[in-house]
Design a protein around this nucleic acid. Sequence first.
DNA 1: TAATAGTTGACTATTTTGCTAGGTTAAGTA
DNA 2: TACTTAACCTAGCAAAATAGTCAACTATTA
Lengths: 157, 157
Amino acid sequence: MRLTTKGRYAVTAMLDLAFHSQTTPVTLTDIAARQTISLSYLEQLFARLRRAGMVKGVRGPGGGYKLCRKASDINIADIIAAVNEPLDSTKCRGEANCQKDQACLTHDLWMGLSEQIKDYLKGISLADLLERNQVQEVAMRQHHDAQQAIEIYRHPD
Amino acid sequence: MRLTTKGRYAVTAMLDLAFHSQTTPVTLTDIAARQTISLSYLEQLFARLRRAGMVKGVRGPGGGYKLCRKASDINIADIIAAVNEPLDSTKCRGEANCQKDQACLTHDLWMGLSEQIKDYLKGISLADLLERNQVQEVAMRQHHDAQQAIEIYRHPD
DNA sequence: TAATAGTTGACTATTTTGCTAGGTTAAGTA
DNA sequence: TACTTAACCTAGCAAAATAGTCAACTATTA
C-alpha cells in the first residue's frame, strides 16, 4: 500500500463522483472543473478504475461515469490499489529471497505495516467519507461555485 | 503522511541501528552492507534523521551513529516524516484556500485520512518492531551473514 | 447525421528517487 | 605529528513516477 498524490487524486475524484452521481452519470469534465484536476490525467485514472471494475462509463450525450457498486461497498484501499502499479513493494517481490535467498528485514517488517494500513483503509468506504458533515458542506459549496464555471465552459457564447 | 520506498529505507535502517547499537555506535558502512542500501543514499537519509534529532553521529575511529532516544521513544511516523519533504500534501498547503479561497475536498478528506494513518504509525515504536520474533531472527541471521562480508571489505588483504 | 462523451495511444515536462563521485572536517591512534 | 577512520557535505546524474497535452477514434443518442 503506497500513499502518494496519485491515490489522493483518485480518492478525491471518486468521492466527487459518489456525491454527484446519485441520479445521472457525471462527466470527467465536471469533476475536473470541481476538483481542479486535469481532464486528461483524470481520464488515465478512470481508465484504471474502470478496468478494476469500480466505475462504468456511459457514452454519448448525457453520459459520463457511474459507480459500479454502492458507495458503501467501495473502500479506499481498493481505489488506491487500482490506480497504483501492481507494486512489487519490496525488492524481493514477495518471493522472500531478496538477500541471498533469505527474507529481508524490509520484507518482514514493511509488508506487515503495509498490510495493516491496507486493512485500515479497507475498513473505510466512500459512503463513510460522504457521511462526514464537513465534506458534504464543502462539496455542496463546490457544486454551487463550479456550476457557473462549467456553464461558461460549455456555452462560451 | 506519504508512504514510499524512501520511508521504507529509513525505517529499515533505523531498525538495524536500534538492533545493533546497544553498546557501540554503528557505522553506515555496516548498515549499508547488512541491508543492501547504498552508503551514499544512507548518508543522505541519516543527514535528515540527524537534523530531526533522532540520531547522533560520532566521528572518528570507532564512531558511527547512535539513537538519540530509546527505541521505545522513537515511532515510525516520525522516521518517515523526517526523510520526506515537509510535504504540502494538498495544493492549499494547509491554508485551506486552494480553491477560490475555500477549503477543497482534498484538504478536508485526505488530510483527515493522512492524520489517522500518521496516528496509527505514531503508535508503533522501533522497540515494538524489535520485539517481533521474526524480525529478531532475520536481523540475527543478517548480522551473522554480513559479518564476513564486512571483514573482507575492511581488510581486503 | 451531427453532437456528445468515452477510449486510446503517443508524447512531453517536471519532480522524486536512488545512487555515484568527490570532497571536508572531527576524532581517535600509531 | 601524521595517519586513519568515519561522519558530513555538495554536486550531479539516470531512471522512474507524476502530471499533463494532443490528437485520433468509437459508441451513443438526440
